[in-house]
């Protein structure tokens, strides 16, 4: 059963790619596949950090607000600070994640409500940073300071490289460090972890900080791709981001999951979207399909033995 769950998402992805290819052979062209992957990377970046939080059995609803905020910050500061605007924006993202973690753990507020509250605060910061407008990024600034995110290296779009680096680093963090093992353990059996003396609160705060940092990075890359930052830039990205984590096979009950699964999940969501467009499913119906995919994926991946009452 576990191996089945492990390999189901990649197999589904390959089948979906082949199915869409059968309908529209042009889809399988290498160039096209690379473009699709590059387009999906912002979504993956946003979901990658949140994967840690979900693996602990929590949730981070602030990621779209954080991404919008960093897009505003980077767009507003690029003319003055140049490249330094990027670390400032990333720092702001990490700081909001840190705040979210502190509020959730130290004040013992459930993570969905803590992160909802934080999303209100970061939205205010976004409006403040952008002066309530969308802030354009000059083409020159973009080429000199954001080329690492939106340019090309050889045949590869840089979005893909950024995504792969994130996949590698976060994967190592989750699978090769004590922090990663603690995250997994907290998700499986939090009471036992608390009893064994592991600093649970610190691990949780760090996971939320990572989530904020990666959402912040997603916002910066998005701003680079769109050439502007705005307080509503990443709206409507929260649900797809959570969907890629869950569709990849990470359970919201915690314990089970990986960054690679989220990567697969993000590509799956993208291929489903493109496939539906090719087949002629209206945008109208696509939204309903995505809502249902999420709900079904949650139902399938959830570990029922862990929840006695479902609230």
């Amino acid at each position: 059963m576990e191996t089945f769950r492990e390999y189901l998402p990649p197999v589904v992805l390959v089948l979906l790619v082949l199915a869409v290819g059968a309908i529209e052979p042009g889809f399988l062209a290498v160039d096209n596949l690379l473009t699709v992957t590059a387009d999906t990377m912002t979504l993956f970046l946003m979901a990658s950090g949140a994967t840690f939080v979900i693996m602990m059995g929590g949730i981070d609803l602030s990621i779209q607000g954080v991404a919008s905020m960093t897009s505003c910050i980077v767009a507003a500061l690029l003319p003055e600070l140049g490249f330094a605007a990027v670390p400032v924006a990333l720092f702001a993202g990490a700081a909001s994640g840190l705040l979210c973690g502190i509020v959730s753990t130290r004040l013992r507020i459930p993570s969905f409500i803590a992160s909802l509250a934080i999303s209100g605060i970061v939205t205010t910061v976004a409006y403040w940073a952008s002066d309530t407008r969308s802030v354009l990024i000059a083409a020159g600034d973009r080429d000199s300071f954001l080329a690492w995110a939106v340019g090309d290296t050889g045949p590869l779009q840089n979005e893909i490289l950024v995504g792969l680096v994130a996949l590698l680093l976060l994967g190592l963090l989750l699978n090769g460090t004590p922090f990663g093992r603690y995250v997994r353990a907290i998700g499986s059996q939090e009471r036992a972890v608390v009893a064994s003396g592991i600093p649970v609160e610190r691990v949780k705060i760090l996971a939320f900080t990572l989530s904020g940092l990666m959402a912040g990075l997603a916002g910066v890359v998005m701003a680079g791709r769109l050439g502007s930052g705005s307080p509503t830039l990443a709206n409507e990205f929260l649900l797809p981001a959570i969907a890629c984590i869950i569709v990849g096979g990470t359970a919201i009950t915690g314990g089970v999951g990986s960054i690679f699964r989220t990567f697969i999940g993000a590509l799956t969501i993208a291929v489903v979207r493109i496939g539906m467009t090719f087949v002629g499913v209206s945008v109208f119906a696509q939204q309903i399909v995505f809502g249902l995919i999420l709900v079904l994926a949650v139902a399938i991946t959830m570990d029922r033995s862990k929840v006695t009452t479902v609230k």
């Binding site: 649900l239 109208f284 939204q287 809502g291 999420l294 709900v295 949650v298 929840v307 479902v310």
Partner: peptide, 25 residues
């Protein structure tokens, strides 16, 4: 939420998102 035994924040997030999407579409 009840029949599939999914936490309510998840089902309502999904339905809410689908509704905004449908209204937009």
């Amino acid at each position: 939420h009840v029949r599939l035994a999914i936490p309510s924040f998840m089902t309502t997030l999904g339905i809410g998102f689908a509704c905004v999407g449908v209204a937009t579409a």
